[in-house]
Design a protein around this nucleic acid. Structure first.
Length: 489
DNA sequence: CGCATGATGCCTACGCATCATGCGGTGCAGTAGT
């Protein structure tokens, strides 16, 4: 496509969004897509990543396919596009009834934006239909999921590679994410079949997020610390924990202390999750006690605090989670509570579901004999996820290859946990040591840095919000009075 | 691994100590059955 003038691009921006100028980072990415280049854009959340795929199609024509990791994310984005007046949008996913789905599949060409999941995309009839479409470009939204989930959780993310390889003329691919380690970037390039992609990579440092590590003896001490801290310091904040049960337990304790808090984890009903998320976004809830299910696609600019009850199993995940603080640029604080026994729990959680080489060989043997993998997996005591992952690697690389892969994955995970332990136990500037793991350096000067460099005593020790001094629930008389509009004295 | 929960053992009624067992994150899709 011929070069687009500055004026044309700005006019288009104005027409589509009503804005007069791009936010930092957007224009380069849009130009790269328009030039037909494979592109990797690592932009902080809130930088307006979605504009990067929304705009170019108005000049290229055709359809954009957006591969998205979460149904809720697709729904949000479809709703937003519709609010902006875009009518030709579809989400191709399991929310559709069979009838709706085949209607969408029949009329694919009339959409400008099609959102789908990797799993849906990999279904044969879907993948063929989509590949035969005139696609302007293909977008991998939250592209770090390829790296974070593809290998041991959602293998369909890795199958994108074969799907892309099946094009005779593959459209350009745009990968968007907020955080990406070198490994993630490498996986994205590799599994999205990118050819010397243009890379626009925002540095991982967040100067306005101060870092703090607090060593504590055990879980009980952590619980006490959390109650003390949260009852005196204001949020909004996210408390990350490693189990659903502990999320519920801590949310309960905080509520009993008068803190508007709620749990969030994958074991909750979809409606409850949406409600909690919405209340947090609206400021009705001050704290969320969550597993790692919480965060992706949530754009709340004023999160002041992130507390980790335990470290997550990789530095990439840690930096992603603390990156949810302070998107408005204001001073925020990320606290990691550390006790030596955390390491074992991290190892357990992260390696438990990974099938061991013997199980992989057993599964391969059964599959060879024509037994369905699900059935064989059950005999081997493997979870549904483990079976799917193992079956993927067996199909890709054979029994020995897959067994080797599992060892490699386990070793990689152990190494990453080791990195987090050294990070938590180490000496010296926390920011420098964290960024070091990404081959980066602190970018800010005059920064409230970390607990190793020294934090001011009053950091974020704001007055507890007035709302919290009211009882969470009014007594029944007052509630009835309110219902009937009687002014209470 | 560490923690929480439930079962067992005591030895005849209750409550306590001890042991055994289970559980621990992330999501899609499709199907069976409300």
């Amino acid at each position: 496509m011929e070069t687009i003038s500055q004026e044309q691009l700005t006019q288009l921006l104005k027409r589509i969004t009503g804005y007069n100028s791009f936010r930092p980072g957007q224009e380069e990415v849009i130009r790269s897509v328009l030039a037909g280049r494979d592109t990797i854009a690592v932009l902080p959340t809130g930088a307006g990543k979605s504009l990067c795929y929304q705009l170019p199609v108005h000049l290229t024509g055709g359809t954009v396919l957006i591969v998205s990791p979460l149904l809720s994310l697709m729904e949000d984005q479809v709703a937003q596009l519709k609010r902006e007046g875009e009518k030709s949008v579809a989400a191709l996913n399991s929310f559709l009834t069979p009838g709706e789905k085949s209607a969408v599949l029949r009329n694919l060409h009339q959409y400008r934006f099609i959102f789908t999941s990797p799993e849906m995309l990999m279904q044969r009839h879907v993948s063929e239909r989509l590949r035969s479409l005139r696609l302007a470009y293909i977008v991998a939204d939250e592209a770090h999921c390829i790296s974070q989930w593809g290998f041991d959780f959602r293998p369909d993310y890795l199958r994108l590679r074969e799907w892309l390889a099946g094009f005779s003329e593959r459209p350009p691919v745009l990968a968007l994410t907020a955080t990406a380690s070198d490994k993630a970037i490498g996986d994205i390039e590799n599994y999205l079949m990118m050819h010397s992609p243009a890379k626009y990579i925002h540095p991982p440092d967040r100067p306005n997020v101060a870092l703090q590590i607090i060593p504590l003896k055990d879980r009980e001490e952590k619980t006490e610390w959390i109650r003390r801290e949260i009852s005196r310091a204001s949020g909004p904040g996210i408390l990350y924990v490693q189990s659903r049960k502990r999320a519920e337990m801590l949310a309960g304790l905080l509520r009993a202390d008068g803190v508007p808090a709620a749990a969030f984890h994958a074991g909750m009903e979809k409606d409850d999750r949406m409600l909690v998320q919405q209340q947090f976004l609206n400021g009705e809830l001050e704290w969320i006690c969550a597993t790692n299910a919480f965060g992706m696609g949530i754009n709340k600019p004023d999160v002041r605090r992130i507390i980790h009850d335990q470290f997550p199993p990789s530095a990439a995940q840690y930096i992603q989670e603390i990156g949810r603080a302070g998107r408005d640029g204001k001073q925020s604080l990320a606290t990691l509570l550390y006790s030596p026994s955390d390491a074992d729990a991290a190892v357990f959680i992260s390696l438990d579901e990974l099938p061991d080489p013997a199980a992989v060989r057993f599964l391969a043997e059964c599959m060879n004999n024509g037994e369905p993998p699900e059935q064989a997996g059950e005999r081997a005591g493997l979870s549904e996820t483990a079976v799917r992952v193992a079956a993927y690697w067996i199909a890709e690389e054979g029994a020995d290859g897959a067994a080797g892969r599992m060892e490699e994955l386990a070793a990689g995970k152990s190494r990453e946990i080791g990195e987090m332990i050294r990070f938590a136990e180490g000496d010296g500037c926390i920011r420098e040591r964290l960024l070091n793991l990404f081959g980066a350096r602190p970018v800010g000067t005059d920064v409230v840095c970390c607990s190793a460099c020294g934090l001011p005593a009053d950091l974020l020790a704001n007055a507890v919000p007035a709302a919290r001094n009211r009882p969470a629930l009014l007594d029944w008389q007052e509630r009835i009075d309110r219902l009937f509009g009687v002014a209470s004295s």
